[in-house]
Amino acid sequence: MYRRNTNKKSDPNYTEYVFKIPLGLELSDFQDKYGKFKDGLNNRSAYRINLRQFKELKFNRTFIKQLRSILENREQFRKEIEIEYDGMLIFRVYDKGLTRDYTFDDALLKKVSNWEIPIGITLRDFIRHDFEKLQMLVVAGMTRYGKTVFLKNAVTTLIHNEPDNVKFTLIDLKGGLAFSRFANCKQVNTVAKNAEETIDALEAIHTELLDRQELFLSKGWEDIGEAGWKERHFVIVDEGAEIAGFPDNKERDRCSYLLGEVARIGAGLGYRLIFATQYPTADVFPRSIKSNTSAALCFKLKNSTQSMVVLDRKGAESLPLKLPGRAIYQTDCDRIVQTPYIKNSFIDTTIAPHITIKARSERIASQRSDEKATGGTYTAQFEEV
């Protein structure tokens, strides 16, 4: 082990330690013990003397008590760690942890463009997710820990950045409340709230997807990029575990199959999938989705079994209690992030220019015109919400 020199002037917040991993061990052996490492670092406190408090001393009967309070002030350590591997095992020990308050605002919105959305901040970096590079995203987490807030972040950002090119099919199997404020946005084709509406929406997407696949084959286009199409169609599912509870087994199996088809062949045809659930168990998380998933955002989960389903490793169960927005973002590596909190008032202001209530015939005519202009095909598929 050696302590790597860090530039304290550019980033004084952490110290980096580098180890050679012993034979027989791997990175996951250390990641699985993240909570124990962190607890070990923070089981002590240190004296913290604030010199300004000496100016506030009052020379009266309580002077000695005041002085003792200043001199004996102790502060519990709140160190954080990052564990990485680049041929050597790297531990970064941060003097201070991640912020607990991170608000979604105009300044944050300016940090992303096109098909990027903000994931959040780590101890060192601002993290974006680019749906042109990573087309499918799984989101998991217990209720009240930030899962639905993140989905609203994503929809708001994409409407703001690509208002003329993004389309949404929003599936909210908790009654439609999470996505209700987006229902009349011109970019939203439908908000499905139950099994019947979900099947109808997915069947229409599947038909359109197969038609588009045939068109690409006939034109010799390999993917949406070569075709030159700007439109991206996002299918966002909030509370995917409810699919396993559909009373009709045929509906349940069909729904899982259709979502799997979007994940399997949709990426190259311009479809993007965000699948979210608060109960990520093997029987409610379709294998066809997981096997085609390119990234995951995992908020706190109840146990290590659920964490294994989403991340293929433990860890999400060890995220802090009562700290909404803290999550593990997994792509080619795992990073602990604080995701931003978006206020409903900010959403309403941002999407207000895009609210419109069209008659169904007007929407169909508009979409037919768009498809004709791009050489595509059109299938009338969605009922007005």
Rank of each mutant, 00 (worst) to 15 (best):
S256I: 13
V309D: 01
F104I: 09
P163K: 05
Y2D: 14
I336D: 01
R264I: 14
F234S: 05
G141E: 03
P353E: 07
I243E: 03
R360P: 02
K36Y: 11
K111E: 05
I121T: 12
V191K: 11
M136S: 11
K110N: 09
T156I: 07
L71E: 12
D334F: 10
M88S: 15
R124M: 06
N249R: 10
Q187P: 07
L259V: 08
S345K: 08
R52A: 15
G245A: 13
R52H: 14
F382P: 06
I64A: 10
P163N: 12
L67R: 04
N153R: 00
V235R: 03
R363L: 13
L273V: 10
E317M: 03
Y102E: 00
R264S: 15
R368D: 07
K9I: 07
A359I: 14
Q53M: 13
T103I: 15
R252I: 06
G266I: 08
L134G: 05
T198K: 07
Y14F: 09
N43S: 15
P247E: 04
R212H: 05
R61P: 12
K358V: 04
S366T: 14
S45D: 12
L202P: 07
V385S: 04
K314I: 04
S304K: 13
L134E: 06
K147V: 08
K230W: 05
L258Q: 07
A46L: 15
L25R: 12
E383R: 15
Q213K: 15
E384A: 03
M136C: 02
E82Y: 02
S113T: 14
F30G: 04
Y279C: 01
F382W: 13
D334W: 08
